[in-house]
Simulated assay, not measured.
Amino acid sequence: MDLVSIIGTILAFVVIITGTILKGSSLEALWNPAAFVIVFLGTVAALLVQTPGKVLKRAGGMLPLVYKPPRHQAADLISRIVGWSELSRRQGLLGLEPQIDAEQDSFVRKGLQLLVDGSEPEAIRSVLEVELGTREQIDLDASKVFENAGTYSPTLGIIGAVMGLMAVMQNLADPSKLGHGIAAAFVATIYGIGLANLLMLPMAARLKGLVHKQSEMREIVIEGLVSIAQGDNPRQIESKLQGYLA
């Protein structure tokens, strides 16, 4: 679990609640069913119209990564690649075949299979770079779902506020209802702006960062496997891949 992300999310709610109390309002004032429906369900509706089902499904699958991101250890990956290089020099490329089933990452398995099959270095690079680009684009599209939610929710918050003020204007004859009505109208604005800036946009940025880091790890795999296919010395491979750690 990523403790920093968890603390950040909790702190976001604490800030809103504490700010409300310090401003002299009550916690009950933060709850408004109509504003919730307009902002939250309205944002979901907008995303359903804009986004294909497969992208939404992938976005839902990526959401836990905000709080439990994969551990990207470039140094460990480089060490494994150097080990594959040393093994291939001792036993030939077929000596890497047992390593294929031991790998959990399908991208790495595919690369090792191409290597064991005796594919040319440029063929390995070409195939893996196409898959790298495809996977990266799929994940970036999924992360943009949260970015789009952060774009829609403030606007829907304004819509909710305007609708609330419309209801207030219809009760101008009863001054006792004006204060409560105006306060309730602006709750939608809080929902919309808070949802965008405290949750959706930070989540989108975090997921994009994880996608780029994953792509960097896969670039290391590509360079390493191509170098092995070219017959480069294990020390040369290690020196080349160490550049990614800088």
Rank of each mutant, 00 (worst) to 15 (best):
L3C: 04
I6K: 03
T9N: 02
L11T: 14
V14H: 07
V14M: 10
I21W: 15
S25R: 15
S25Y: 15
W31H: 15
N32L: 06
N32Y: 12
V37I: 10
T43S: 03
G60L: 14
G61W: 07
V66I: 12
H72K: 06
L77W: 04
L77I: 06
W84C: 01
L94P: 00
G95F: 09
D101K: 15
D101A: 15
S106C: 00
F107E: 01
V108P: 01
R109N: 01
Q113S: 11
L115I: 11
V116H: 02
E122M: 09
E131T: 05
E136T: 15
D139W: 13
D141T: 03
A142P: 06
S143M: 04
N148R: 12
G150T: 02
T151N: 14
S153V: 10
P154I: 13
L156E: 01
M163H: 06
A167L: 11
V168F: 04
M169Y: 00
N171K: 13
N171Y: 00
P175E: 00
S176M: 11
L178V: 14
I182H: 10
A183P: 04
A185R: 04
T189D: 12
L195S: 09
A196C: 09
L199P: 00
M200Q: 12
M200T: 08
P202Q: 10
P202H: 10
R206T: 09
L207P: 14
K208H: 10
L210A: 03
S215L: 03
M217R: 03
R218F: 10
V226H: 01
I228Y: 05
I228S: 02
A229Y: 00
N233S: 11
R235M: 02
S239Q: 09
G243A: 12
Y244C: 07
A246W: 06
A246S: 08
